[in-house]
Design a protein around this nucleic acid. Sequence first.
DNA 1: TAATCGAGGGTACTGAGTGCCATATGGGTG
DNA 2: CACCCATATGGCACTCAGTACCCTCGATTA
Lengths: 234, 234
Amino acid sequence: MRESLVRAAFQLFLERGFEQTTIDDIVSLAGVGRRSFFRYFPSKEDVVFPDHEGALQGMTAFLREAPADGDPVAQACDASRLVLAMYAADPLFSVQRYRLTREVPGLRAHELSVVWRYERALAEHLRERGADRSDGALRADVVAAAVVAAHNHALRSWLRAGGEGDVDAAMDEALGYVARAFSPAGPSAAPASAVPADGAHPRQDPDEQVVVLVARKGAPLWQVVRDVEGALGQ
Amino acid sequence: MRESLVRAAFQLFLERGFEQTTIDDIVSLAGVGRRSFFRYFPSKEDVVFPDHEGALQGMTAFLREAPADGDPVAQACDASRLVLAMYAADPLFSVQRYRLTREVPGLRAHELSVVWRYERALAEHLRERGADRSDGALRADVVAAAVVAAHNHALRSWLRAGGEGDVDAAMDEALGYVARAFSPAGPSAAPASAVPADGAHPRQDPDEQVVVLVARKGAPLWQVVRDVEGALGQ
DNA sequence: TAATCGAGGGTACTGAGTGCCATATGGGTG
DNA sequence: CACCCATATGGCACTCAGTACCCTCGATTA
């Protein structure tokens, strides 16, 4: 029933537009009563996002079950990957929906409230798990927004490309950018403070799988690259 | 006319609720024709945000006139202060509106699309002014989202407190947090001045500026070099 | 067999938003 | 003064989303 309504709705939305399609058009094509539409979808917009309610519940469940001693930021990133996986599971559908939401203001507004709920779920998780910090609430809001923005950036470039290419790679880069921006201030990445600042020399920490490089700002690029090569070369 | 419609609408929204108030109620209280309402506000929700269209145009004008050699992130922060000033100019109105939008889902959704337009304006500015960076588009999206989240965090705590207290101080702290995370030197070098002092660590000295780069050990060389270029270049 | 229950259908209603036309009002020109 | 024109406003009728209420039908159970 849900499935047939979604199929009928998308067929009409794509061939004549969202606003040019009425609920009566949809239910008559699907062969069901008009009243039944609103049993399955609270509004006309919701039929375009039939899987988000489930994805949101999946995300909250994932965050609830996340280990308490893990990195909350990394958990938030993983949670956003869950949502991405929902999109990637049906590229054709996702691309068609993307083109719809880009053009119809009402659908864009509806998507914003959907995404807002994801962001609130992430922020709440970050706030609860990072309550020991002094500015925990602010950090939670900002990091959640950054994670969602990175997710949207990766997702939308993939959708713009018609669902071709490697979403996960783009997602890795986008989330990596956020993680780099916010993780050094985290409890697990303290060793940056042990590096002397009086020269350009890489330092390698065998436990943390990161390379910390310190360079003077005016240092020639070739020299820095040589040092980076030496540090990464393994 | 606009003013009388807004006054009548808010009086009714506050005394009997948003959804319990019809357009006819508003226009009969304001003493104007029903058709005139939709001449001034495209929807019932818009009457709750009568000043956002102007604020959005003010923000885009501010960003357009911003000096090309300035720090785009700082300009984005200043642009968000403009919006905050609009809220702070009428605390009573802002607090009443906040309580409305918190309770009415339709108003929350509408506010989200308003805020989304601010965020897009910021992201576009950051993308244009930071086009030289390699991952400029991603950075623009993430920084814009972070600035908006910081703005909302400061604004909402002030609104929750009933409009009492120092908004600007909260805004300084929130934007300062974002600015530290995304300082001009780039994501890799950002935390250099923000690392808590639990040992000897590099300090940002105006004479001898130091760049701290953190990279995952398995990271491809080109990616690291790209970050180094970004950090050293500016 | 009777009672119940849940899924779906039908009908009538409210209210937001739109298109079209009528009506002022006010300023300028002959 | 008469006329014209642009703009602001009011009125009317219409579409359509969303809701309340009640109906039917089939399956299960006492």
